[in-house]
Every structure is written in structure tokens, then in C-alpha cells.
Design a protein around this nucleic acid. Sequence first.
DNA 1: CTGGATCCCACGCGATACTG
DNA 2: CAGTATCGCGTGGGATCCAG
Lengths: 140, 140
Amino acid sequence: MCSVDTARPTDDRLLGPCSYLPTEHADTVRKVLDRVGDKWTMLVVVTLRDGPRRYTDLQRAIPGISQRMLTLTLRRLHEDGLVTRTAHAEVPPRVEYALTPLSRGLLEIVAPLVDWALEHHDEISANQDRTNAASGAGGR
Amino acid sequence: MCSVDTARPTDDRLLGPCSYLPTEHADTVRKVLDRVGDKWTMLVVVTLRDGPRRYTDLQRAIPGISQRMLTLTLRRLHEDGLVTRTAHAEVPPRVEYALTPLSRGLLEIVAPLVDWALEHHDEISANQDRTNAASGAGGR
DNA sequence: CTGGATCCCACGCGATACTG
DNA sequence: CAGTATCGCGTGGGATCCAG
């Protein structure tokens, strides 16, 4: 895979397999990272992984989310082309949200990160404890 | 556990048996995603990729970051064990920050995500245009 | 040079009430 | 059921000043 060791020279053609956050694209990347780091976005995406879901269905499946945030998150996802929105003209109304190929791709990319998080979570926690102990109480 | 390789064969139901983000771990994962989605964290990490850097050096290398945020970001990274902080006892003071194996691992995991972002950025932008046009002024 | 302390605003987000 | 509208709080984060 792409190595992480040496500085690559300024390169305008960065869409190759190994391109890292050059200053020119920092904004672009941060926009995506913002979405991913968003409080609810990935949670909604993951909830939609197994198939289409209705609005209330999602709200039930994601504990703690408010109507407001569910609506906003879904709208943004839809605008980004990461979910489809299908409104069935019937009474009572039924709206179904589903992932797109794009968001499934994103899901695949993010999955390793989730794994990493679960895998190194305790390591990070341990580091935090160590740091706090070191700076807080210099040996009691 | 359910480890997923990026070089996994393209499969329609790839994330099937491996359930990510169960409710129990949602919090753990979101903590990490929060860091990654943080405005400056990944930018600092990437800037440190090529070797240790001093405080002011980082500030120069990352346009737009304030002292406050640089300090906070570095402190959090240090607490998480993602960077080392080496203070040289001399005048004027010199402090060097460097990545740890942990953060290098994270960097490798995030890299594909960055690639994905660059790769699909225009696709997302196009979707946004289409959505706006569709809802705002009855198609073009 | 390397930060810490403060002020302050903008914004994310939750709670609640209302509509088609 | 599937949203929209409004208010209010907590906090992320920039600007500025101060200190070791």
C-alpha cells in the first residue's frame, strides 16, 4: 500500500491511490471528515445498512436522537446523495430512506476505522490515565 | 473479532455478519470519530507525519489554526497517547511533538477515507447541485 | 518560544409545540 | 406518520492578553 514515511513533493495529480491531505485539499477532506465525525450521521448510515427504514423506524432504532437532528441528518445525507428518500403517496404517509452505492462505499471505508476504534479504545484510555496521573499528582 | 480488510472482495452484503456500532459500543466509537472529525486533529497528525515538529513550526505549517486550538489539540493528542511531547531544557525553550506508533496506525486507517473523500468529492457536489435545483427551481 | 487564562460569539443540538 | 418552527443552553473555537 502507500507508504507514510517520506514527504511527497507538491503534486497536483493527487487522486492516485495514495494521497494525503495536501494543503490545497484540506478543506475538501475536512468537509467529509466533518460528516463522518458528526454526532449522528454514521449512526444513521449504519442503521440503514440492513435495508430501507422509515422515519419513525429510524427514530426508534437510534436511541437519543431528536426529530430535529434526525430530519437534519437525513436531509444532509440526501443532499449529499448518501441516502435515497422515497415518499409513498398514501394515508398515512410513508417515507423510506435507503443507502446508495456511494454511502455503501463510504461504509466500507469507515468500517476499518470503527474496528480500529474498538481495538485501541482501552489503549487510549490507559494512556489517558497515565497522563493524568503523571501531571496531576506527581507521586502522592 | 470481526476484522475487515479494505482489500475485501466486493460483496453486496459485506458488512452482514459483522455488526458494527452496536448500541453498547456506539459511545466508544463516536469518541474516536469525534476526534477524527475534529477540525484540527487530523490536520496536526498529518503535519507530523514526516517527523517531529516544534510548536511554532506546527502553527506555521497549519494555516488558520490559533494558539489556543493548537495547544488544546496537542494536549488531547498527547493525553490519548497519539503524540509524544519532548521539552528540551534550554533557553529559549524548545518542545518537539512527534507521532507515536498508535497514531501512525490511525493515520494508515484514515488514509483510505481521505482518498475516498478526494475521489468522491465532485460526485457529492454534483448531488448537492441536483438536489438544490430539484427542490428550489423545478429542475433545469 | 511555548503555552495558559479570559472574553465572547456562533453554532450544534436538544426540548417542545405545531402542521399537513 | 413525517416532518417544520422556535427557543435556549452548552460548547467549539477565534482573538487577545499575559506568563515562564
